[in-house]
């Protein structure tokens, strides 16, 4: 009906916007303006800033430096050390999330008493805000009164309280553990949705062909889950690469530089050193790297799906 009435109006106006189109534009304009102001403009402006030596503590000296900030970042050995830590953190986190989520999804895909309750309980970590999650793990890991030490001591696994976050060799793994705890529920849901879409006929046919449980999992379940896995891996990789909250609350980048990941360096450079130019350049490098990685993962997995 709308199409019929609008066509003559458009024709009558020689291709200009129709009355309805104008109305639509007016209605969209406020939201578009807000989106431009809070999303598009900051993104463009941060790139503009990254081309200047903008440091708030030197307000009278803001030279145009072109791509110098990018060169400074990319030639800084400490930045590459942070990239290495970010990669290590991301790989261990995403691998753990994928494996644990797959096992949990397979479990929840079966019918057994208490399945609904277990499903609800599994969602709890997802419902906890990131900062609350970080504070909770800070208490758990505390070397003086932490629950982890208490538990291990009660079970006679340790003779004295251990220093967890203060041990540079364990820090990244412990932060990854807290990250995994928070991220697993969403991954479970995504994989569970994938599992639900696998036709029962495929399993029946596999059974007829004499496939055992492991073979059915390897040749039916896993191939059918590829697209869900791609989504989980891409999403969790992006979350891990840019993750900040746990590093801020648990270790503040320490001990020493053991948890100086890229996101932490961006925070320090931008909000502690107030070096907005360099911080913006670092943010752009991180964003572009994440985008490229996500694209590569999607492409690689898409070719196999």
């Amino acid at each position: 009906m709308t199409a019929i009435t609008s066509l003559p109006r458009r024709a009558a106006r020689f291709g200009g916007p129709t009355y309805d189109e104008r109305n639509a534009l007016v209605l969209i304009a406020p939201l578009a303006t807000v989106l431009f102001a809070v999303a598009v403009f900051p993104i463009l402006y941060s790139f503009y800033i990254s081309l200047y030596g903008l440091k708030l503590t030197r307000p009278h000296r803001v030279p145009f430096v072109g791509l110098e900030n990018y060169v400074t970042v990319l030639t800084d050995p400490q930045f590459w050390e942070a990239v290495g830590r970010t990669a290590a953190f991301s790989v261990m986190s995403v691998a753990a999330v994928a494996v644990i989520a797959l096992l949990a999804a397979l479990l929840l895909n079966e019918e057994f008493p208490g399945r609904r309750v277990l499903s609800a309980v599994l969602l709890v970590p997802w419902a906890i805000p990131y900062v609350a999650n970080a504070l909770m793990w800070k208490w758990i890991y505390d070397s003086n009164y932490g629950a982890l030490n208490g538990l291990l001591y009660q079970l006679d696994f340790i003779n004295s309280y251990m220093v967890w976050l203060g041990d540079a060799d364990k820090t990244l793994a412990l932060i990854a553990n807290a990250f995994v705890w928070k991220e697993v529920p969403l991954a479970v849901i995504l994989l569970l949705v994938g599992l639900k879409t696998i036709p029962a006929d495929l399993y029946a046919a596999a059974k007829v062909d004499g496939a055992n449980a492991l073979q059915r999992f390897l040749h039916v379940t896993l191939p059918a889950l590829k697209s869900s896995f791609a989504l989980v891996i891409v999403y969790e990789t992006m979350m891990a690469i840019r993750h900040f909250d746990l590093f801020f609350i648990l270790t503040e980048g320490g001990p020493g530089d053991a948890s100086h990941v890229v996101a932490w360096r961006i925070y320090v450079e931008t909000f502690r050193n107030l070096n907005f130019g360099l911080g913006a350049a670092m943010s752009y490098i991180l964003a572009l790297a994440t985008l490229a990685l996500a694209y590569a993962v999607i492409r690689a997995l898409a070719q196999r799906i």
Binding site: T57, A168, P255, G256, H260, V268, N273
Partner: peptide
């Protein structure tokens, strides 16, 4: 100094690394 904050992070990290034997 004007650059105290920037140096302070590096110095604190250096002392921590020595304490941890790194």
């Amino acid at each position: 100094t004007p650059w105290f904050g920037e140096w302070n992070d590096v110095n604190g990290s250096a002392w921590q690394q020595a304490i941890l034997g790194k």
